[in-house]
Design a protein around this nucleic acid. Structure first.
Length: 596
RNA sequence: GCCCCGGUAGCUCAGUUGGAUAGAGCAACUGCCUUCUAAGCAGUAGGUCAUGGGUUCGAAUCCCGUCCGGGGUACCA
């Protein structure tokens, strides 16, 4: 049992004994004592005044005396206003250290056969352009909440739905046919996804020009957008694709193939992976069948032009299109089909969609539609809705080329890491290959931490000029602390110091105890991150932990300590901080370098 | 118009189910490497928690109004 629960229970008992009042355990607020006061944990007594009918100070005093007598963990207490500060006995902290040091799974729960299965959909790219910074946030969040769920004992299936069909890829296909001159990744030396993206931009350029031309000829904007030759041609390609026209399908396969080769590289560099990949081209027909079934069963309705709609007015929402008048399907149709296939393939207890908050409405509607179609789990879908990444220049727009490309960003940060490491002369002892790997680990650590440390629900600002930092509250700061710890441990091993058998330390210092307290919070932090789907909770925890370690490291010598017991205690402490940080950062997908 | 989300130091962000004097980092200024990695540590300065009311022993946190910003409301995804 942890301290919080122990103290809550004891306080409930105390209130009954002292004042004859029953109070719910949850009403006992146990929090960590603020740094400026003596003590380890604090109970707020204000809520008990009604029961005690005494002043805050007297109530706290009486409660403190009771706890001191009844609870072995409590070593002493002091009272300031309505706050009862308890000092927890040294033995407790040493026990925590022994546990954190020896238990490889400290704070981590293993999945069993009975564990819940959670499927996490993330990434879900369109195949007409390369990944950008917005996708990076999506990928990092999806990967991280999956890892965090696993650490909380869930079975997790990471999945990706690739939007490989639709008007977007047809635009790139048409542009390639028109202006590509047979260009391929091989002939141009370009990464496939970048090449296809180039033609998407090319398409938009022509399309835009055609619209203005038509408008100059007196057409309305709406008509011009519909009648421009490029878009007509792209729509024709989509129609032919759905009709399985051989040439169209072949071109589609070829260009998607280029894109996948490119994506594979980006995913690998980013360090994310998937257990199961679905393709829209394989799911949208299932969705269409479901919509048609719904139409037959009277759940949906058809307009004169043959388009199929859902009437959501009874749910306080609008009319929603499900099949276009030409019979082609839309985004929603596909998602219905994908959901059905997934629940056929796995016995999913919880389905999580990692998708930006701009699609809140979409998922609200999806849940209702699945429910209407008779899927029991429809209402239970969880849309993990995260905020946008903004640039100083505003929102990123693929069509306007105002995006930060994922590959460029990772490459650029690696370059900065390389430069900085060389300036500091940190990695001179390493082979070129090891050094190169370390640059990447540092660069990715910086990027991932920067993105994951902020509350996922909020929009965030990324300034390419200024956001790349390696000092302060950053990934590299945490990595650096880890590398320092490993350096000490290597030296200890060289000196054949054998530590960790037992812990003896009579006079634990303030900094040492701060660290022990922080370590003890790791399991609860992992749980909190899991409950709230928040990698940021883990990130902030790791930062606090290494910050405190650096203070300890500055003030205390480890290997220079003459008392063997204390030296061994500090080695255990350092080692435990290292492994907790490593485990924590793994949940964010961030690697730790042995040296930097 | 209607719906949803947000506003905390110059900038980027934390801030537990409402609790003590609102915290970090960056940027600025000042110290600390003959001692385990100075990508570090310590310090100075920086706040009307957008704003006006309300709830209460206590509000950045909960409720209502106002202002500002973002998103959604497509036969785009």
């Amino acid at each position: 049992m942890n301290i919080e629960t122990t103290i809550q229970n004891a306080t409930v008992a105390a209130l009954k004994e002292l004042y004859g009042q029953e109070i719910a355990k949850e009403q006992v607020q146990v929090q960590n004592t603020r740094k400026d006061f003596d003590g380890d944990v604090t109970i707020v007594v204000f809520p008990f005044l009604r029961a005690s009918k005494k002043s805050p100070e007297v109530t706290a005093e009486e409660l403190g005396n009771f706890l001191l007598k009844q609870v072995g963990l409590v070593h002493s207490f002091n009272v300031i206003k309505g706050f009862l500060n308890l000092e927890i006995s040294k033995e407790y902290w040493l026990e925590i250290l022994a546990e954190a040091f020896s238990d490889n799974g400290f704070g981590i729960k293993e999945a069993s056969d009975e564990s819940e299965l959670m499927m996490v959909e993330y990434s879900s790219p369109n195949t007409n352009k390369p990944l950008h910074l917005g996708h990076i946030r999506n990928n990092l969040l999806g990967y991280s909440i999956s890892e965090i769920a696993k650490a909380n004992g869930k079975k997790v299936v990471k999945t990706n739905i690739v939007n490989d069909r639709g008007i977007h890829i047809c635009k790139s296909m048409y542009a390639w046919q028109q202006w590509g001159n047979g260009k391929t990744p091989q002939s141009s030396g370009m990464k496939g996804d970048h090449l296809v993206g180039e033609f998407y931009v090319e398409f938009e350029k022509h399309y835009k020009a055609e619209i203005s031309e038509l408008m100059e000829q007196g057409k309305s904007k709406e008509d011009a957008e519909k009648q421009a030759p490029s878009i007509v041609a792209a729509r024709e390609l989509l129609r032919k694709w759905e009709a399985k026209d051989e040439d169209t399908v072949n071109l589609w396969k070829t260009m998607n193939g280029w894109v996948y080769e490119g994506f594979d590289v980006t995913y690998k560099n980013l360090g994310v992976d998937f257990d199961k990949i679905y393709y829209e081209s394989e799911t949208y027909l299932v969705g269409r069948d479901e919509v048609l079934r719904g139409l037959e069963e009277g759940v949906f309705y058809q307009k004169d032009d043959n388009s199929v709609w859902a009437d959501l007015s009874s749910d306080g929402l609008d009319q929603k299109l499900l099949l276009r008048s030409d019979g082609t399907s839309v985004y929603m149709t596909q998602d219905i089909g994908t959901a059905k296939m997934r629940f056929n393939d796995y016995s999913i207890n919880k389905m999580v969609y990692v998708v930006g908050n701009e699609q809140n409405y979409h998922f609200q509607v999806l849940a209702i539609l699945l429910d209407k179609l008779g899927f029991k789990w429809g209402k239970d879908l969880y849309h993990f809705s995260y905020g946008m990444v903004e640039l100083p220049s505003g929102k990123m727009k693929s069509r306007e080329g105002t995006v930060v490309d994922a590959d460029d960003l990772m490459e650029g940060m690696t370059e900065v890491a390389r430069k900085m490491s060389n300036e500091l002369g940190k990695l001179d002892a390493l082979s070129e290959e090891e050094a190169e790997k370390t640059y990447r680990v540092i660069a990715l650590g910086a990027l991932k931490y920067f993105i994951l440390k902020v509350d996922p629900r909020k929009n965030m600002m990324f300034n390419p000029e200024e956001s790349i930092d390696f000092n302060g509250n950053t990934g590299p700061f945490i990595q650096y602390t880890y590398a320092r710890i490993q350096s000490v441990l290597r030296k200890a091993a060289q000196q054949n110091i054998d530590f960790g058998k037992d812990v003896k330390h009579e006079a634990i210092s303030v900094k040492e105890k701060d660290l022990l307290k922080r370590i003890s919070l790791f399991p609860a932090t992992v749980e909190e991150a899991g409950d709230n789907f928040s990698p940021a909770v883990i990130a902030n925890y790791c930062y606090e932990l290494v910050k405190e370690f650096n203070q300890f490291y500055h003030d205390h010598s480890i290997l220079g300590e003459e008392d063997d017991n204390i030296r061994n205690f500090r080695l255990m402490l350092a080692s435990s901080v290292g492994s907790v940080v490593k485990r924590g950062m793994e949940l964010l997908g961030i690697e730790m370098p042995e040296r930097m």
